[in-house]
Amino acid sequence: MAIGYLNGKVISSSDPVLPIDERGHQFGDGVYEYIRIYNGRAFMMDEHMDRFFKSAKAIKLNLGQTREEIITVVNDLIERSGLADCDVYMQATRGIAPRNHLFPNVPASISMTVKPFRAMDETLRKNGAKVKLLPDERWQNCWIKTLNLLPNLLAKQEAFEAGAFEAVLVRDGIVTEGSSSNIFLLKDGTLITPPATKHILHGITRIAVLDIAAELGIPVEEKEFAPEFIFEADEVFLTSTGIEIVPVTSADDRVIGEGNPGVMTTKIYEAFMKRV
């Protein structure tokens, strides 16, 4: 069953618990993390915790708990839910305080939900996904996983309304990432992805794919590239915790490669699922 958690108390995920003066509600003053659970076990928990704590530090938020304490709560909630395959979302905000741009120096308010995994349409993995290129209108520090996702949502919605699965974002003539994913290209046997600068989220599945590429002996280049390079690529795919690895077969209604999921993309996905 789906369950929730707020500051040490297990609750129903549908309980109305958000106070009006909660800073996450008022300002988006907080960070979050999304962890995929396979067969009752969290995948790449250490990497998720690293990012959660780095994000909190970046916005000067004291989480008030150790990573071991948070991991214990996550595992307890998974067990209580009885769900084998599920999504864990955790949010840390600066809590309840009078509305003021200056923030209080207090331990974070931490909430979590455990809900059944939202399965993606597997025909996307089989046939490949369409993407739409859009301007990257987000702030400068996209590596911080904050609650402020409105530009991402608007880009995703615009792509959806255009019949695409994802928006691929472009900043100053350079591809950054998807609205909720990282992007990889394969060109002449080399795997290429934008570098982990402040302009992209340092994805957990991205980390796994780079590690898998090393294991498989696939050369990797982390470098900037223009949108035109997408159409010159042999293969393109997206990665994220929720979608894992999804091939891209067209962008802005232009076919990529042969218009089918590539052999190397499939090989990398199979290696990823072995890790899972």
Rank of each mutant, 00 (worst) to 15 (best):
A2K: 09
A2N: 08
N7Y: 07
G8P: 06
K9P: 03
I11R: 04
S12R: 15
S14N: 09
D15C: 03
I20L: 15
F27C: 04
G28N: 07
G28H: 08
G30C: 10
G30H: 03
E33Q: 08
I35M: 13
I37Q: 01
I37K: 01
I37A: 01
Y38P: 01
M44A: 10
M45Q: 07
H48V: 04
H48Q: 11
H48N: 13
M49S: 08
D50F: 15
D50V: 15
R51W: 10
F53T: 14
K54S: 11
S55D: 03
T66Y: 00
E68S: 13
I71Q: 13
L77C: 04
L77F: 01
S81R: 02
S81M: 06
L83D: 01
L83G: 01
D85M: 09
D85L: 09
D85A: 06
D87Y: 03
D87V: 05
G95E: 03
H101L: 13
H101I: 12
L102Q: 13
S109K: 01
S109N: 00
T113C: 12
T113E: 07
K115F: 01
K115N: 10
K115L: 12
P116E: 07
M120P: 02
L124S: 05
K126Q: 15
K126G: 10
N127T: 13
K130R: 15
K130Q: 11
P135L: 10
D136H: 10
W139P: 07
Q140N: 04
Q140W: 08
N141F: 06
N141T: 07
C142P: 03
C142L: 03
W143Y: 15
L150R: 09
L153V: 14
A155P: 10
K156W: 02
E158R: 15
A159E: 02
E161D: 12
F165V: 00
E166H: 04
A167I: 09
V168R: 03
V170W: 05
R171C: 05
D172Q: 11
D172E: 12
I174C: 06
I174T: 14
I174Q: 09
N182E: 12
N182R: 13
L186P: 01
D188I: 11
D188K: 15
L191Y: 03
I192P: 01
A196W: 06
A196L: 15
H199N: 07
I200W: 07
L201A: 12
L201V: 15
G203R: 05
I204M: 08
R206A: 15
R206E: 13
I207L: 14
A208T: 10
A213W: 04
E215H: 14
I218P: 02
E221N: 09
E221P: 02
E222W: 08
A226W: 00
E228G: 07
E228Y: 08
E228F: 06
E228S: 12
E232R: 14
A233F: 02
A233G: 02
V236L: 04
L238V: 04
T239A: 06
T241K: 05
I245E: 02
V246Y: 02
P247I: 03
P247G: 03
P247N: 08
V248G: 00
D252K: 02
D252N: 14
R254A: 14
V255M: 11
G259S: 11
G259E: 08
N260T: 15
T266D: 13
A271V: 11
F272T: 00
M273A: 05
M273Y: 03
R275L: 11
R275K: 14
V276L: 08
